[in-house]
């Protein structure tokens, strides 16, 4: 009973937050509502017994991804109002299509097709979740039964790294940057110059500023 009440409360907040994400005028507010949505879905997961996923959702998405989102939004000053210009204009085609799909889905789902009793039990490669913790169970199968998908996910992350570097890294001329290798390779002769000023003429004025990089 208490579980059901909790579920409906958090589900209601989740739907509200998700709606606000796409309707909020201020992009920072939208990002913060997304954080709220993540928190509520994490709670729903914990209620369902998947505490590991709930914690990871908060840690990864709220802790890392959304912070990056906020950084991007604040640094780039994205004008969300312009992005939404087509929203109303295309509504006349979008709404009927969406409504049609929703009605069809309700007809199917309302026909008792997803009645929990009618569905087969999932054939999980894990012991009964009631006996052991969710995290223990995941740890047991991740590197054994699901090692192939797990490695594939790792390859996808590698592709993400390569692609993001390829798309954003550009070498421009005239940018001041430190080349550590060159700094280390520097020899004494490159930097030091023996000033011959025995005659007392004080001719160091023609000398180079030794703090300058030899190439500049």
């Amino acid at each position: 009973m208490i579980e059901q009440i909790l579920f409906y409360v958090f589900a209601a907040v989740l739907i509200f937050a998700a709606t606000m994400v796409i309707t909020a005028r201020n992009p920072v507010h939208a990002a913060l509502f997304l954080v709220l949505a993540f928190f509520n879905s994490a709670v729903l997961w914990i209620i369902a017994g998947a505490e590991f996923l709930g914690i990871v959702l908060v840690l990864v998405y709220v802790g890392a991804v959304m912070v990056l989102f906020l950084f991007v939004v604040m640094m780039l000053d994205i004008n969300l109002a312009r992005l939404r210009e087509g929203f109303v204009r295309h509504l006349y085609i979008g709404v009927p299509v969406a409504a049609l799909i929703v009605v069809q889905m309700i007809l199917v789902l309302g026909s008792g097709a997803v009645d929990p009793g009618a569905l087969p039990d999932a054939t999980l490669p894990i012991p009964d979740p009631a006996e052991t913790g969710n995290t223990t169970v995941l740890g047991g199968v991740l590197y054994t039964v699901y090692v192939y998908p797990f490695e594939l996910a790792a390859v996808i992350l590698l592709v993400a790294i390569i692609a993001s570097i390829m798309l954003t890294l550009r070498r421009r001329e005239g940018v001041k940057h430190q080349d550590v290798a060159q700094q280390v390779r520097v020899r004494k002769e490159d930097r030091l110059r023996m000033a011959r000023s025995f005659g007392g003429s004080g001719s160091t004025s023609t000398g180079r500023n030794d703090n300058e990089h030899p190439d500049r």
């Binding site: 699901y146 192939y148 998908p149 594939l152 996910a153 390859v155 996808i156 592709v159 993400a160 390569i162 692609a163 390829m166 798309l167």
Partner: peptide, 19 residues
């Protein structure tokens, strides 16, 4: 031979193609 692997394969192929 499983839904999970099919999906991961599709994503691996598509992500590289987008880039």
């Amino acid at each position: 031979h499983s839904l999970l692997v099919l999906y991961l394969g599709v994503e691996l192929m598509s992500l590289s193609l987008y880039a």
